[in-house]
């Protein structure tokens, strides 16, 4: 060819990081969180109190820990509906162990171990046998909780050692509970894992296009297995915190949490179809849900109304962008 095309320099990115940030879902959600915070402080005189706010965090810390792992799983295009049942089974195992006189370190190891074990079961079924995760985890949800019911019947385990109470009731510093500090640390760990490592990049690639990911040499099954294991691990940790906070175990513990956790993840801007979302969004969504339930609690709103409110919040927040997009894309008249 005679004419050599001039080299055009392609910029790395378009726009500044500030413009990208302000257009994001997370920014919108943050605005919602601020609004709810303001509304709460106007509605109740008890809201703006450091200790009350600290109490409020218990509404979401345990669920949020599981939600971080769930976010990665949903971004990869899978889901785990057995998380609440894993918490129940892990809690039951810890209760039985406590009855047998095992000390606090042993209880923690058992709780986390059961969580990891359940995650491995899910991982083998989904990644190993390539079964659809929604079906597999509906099955293991019944299985894990069913075992807890068989072991416990209508009884409850109590009698945990006094030192075990620290995980759910202890404070690290001033108003900051152990659970809240753990939540903050895990948020950072998961944010780094998803956004700053090769592993996280591969999770996004799998969630957007599993074929292309596989064709790019990514070991899809290995990553999915790891994600189920991580979700089991986080459920085990949540079980330790929750059991410690309540001081007892019933088979109905954490009933319905799987849906609240998925709600938190989706509200945080993670695409239920996979491929998109951030840990930052999930963190803000955790605060939004915690603030709403706590604010309504201060106003003596019954629990069932709260769940209606959370449901509405979810539907409104996921519909709004769709509606806005449709208005923008209308043909100019």
């Amino acid at each position: 060819m005679s004419a050599i095309p001039e080299k055009r320099l392609i910029p790395d990115r378009l726009g500044t990081s500030a413009t990208r940030l302000f257009g994001s879902w997370e920014a919108l959600l943050f605005a919602v969180a601020v609004l709810i915070f303001i509304a709460n402080s106007l509605a109740s005189p008890y809201f703006l109190n450091a200790w009350n706010l600290s109490d409020a965090t218990f509404n979401f810390t345990e669920k949020a820990m599981v939600a971080f792992a769930m976010a990665l799983l949903i971004i990869s295009g899978e889901i785990d509906l057995s998380v609440a049942a894993i918490i129940a089974l892990a809690s039951t195992a810890m209760g039985a162990a406590a009855q047998a006189g095992i000390g606090t370190p042993g209880l923690v190891a058992i709780g986390i171990g059961v969580g990891v074990g359940c995650g491995v079961v899910n991982g083998i079924l989904v990644a190993g046998l390539r079964l659809p995760s929604i079906v597999v985890t509906i099955g293991t949800m019944s299985l894990f909780r069913g075992i807890a019911y068989i072991v416990l019947g209508d009884k409850a385990y109590g009698g945990y050692p006094a030192s075990f109470a620290y995980f759910g009731q202890g404070y690290v510093f001033w108003v900051f509970s152990f659970e809240f500090v753990l939540f903050a640390v895990l948020a950072i760990v998961f944010a780094v894992l998803l956004h700053a490592t090769n592993f996280g990049r591969r999770v996004y690639a799998i969630g957007n296009n599993e074929f292309a990911a596989r064709f790019s040499g990514i070991r899809v099954e290995r990553i999915k297995f790891t994600l189920f294991l991580l979700t089991g691990l986080m459920s085990g940790i949540a079980a330790v915190c929750l059991t410690s906070r309540l001081g007892s175990t019933r088979p109905s513990i954490a009933q319905g949490w799987e849906l609240e956790i998925v709600t938190m993840v989706v509200l945080g801007g993670v695409s239920i179809l996979g491929g998109a979302g951030t840990i930052g969004g999930v963190v803000i969504a955790a605060f939004v849900m915690g603030l709403v339930t706590f604010g309504l609690g201060l106003l003596n709103v019954p629990g069932i109304v709260m769940s209606i409110f959370i449901g509405l919040l979810l539907i409104v927040t996921i519909t709004l962008p769709v509606i806005i997009r449709q208005f923008r894309h209308r043909k100019p008249a």
């Binding site: 790395d12 700053a196 490592t197 090769n198 592993f199 996280g200 990049r201 591969r202 996004y204 690639a205 957007n208 296009n209 074929f211 292309a212 990911a213 064709f215 790019s216 040499g217 990514i218 491929g275 998109a276």
Partner: peptide, 29 residues
């Protein structure tokens, strides 16, 4: 579109996808 590229991901992330071990340092991007 189906097998070759992850269409939703940016150009640079597609190009680095099979070479991540070389562009990263101890697993970090």
């Amino acid at each position: 579109g189906r097998h070759g590229a992850v269409l939703q991901l940016p150009i640079y992330q597609n190009i680095s996808l099979p070479s991540l071990t070389r562009t990263s340092r101890s697993g970090f991007l």
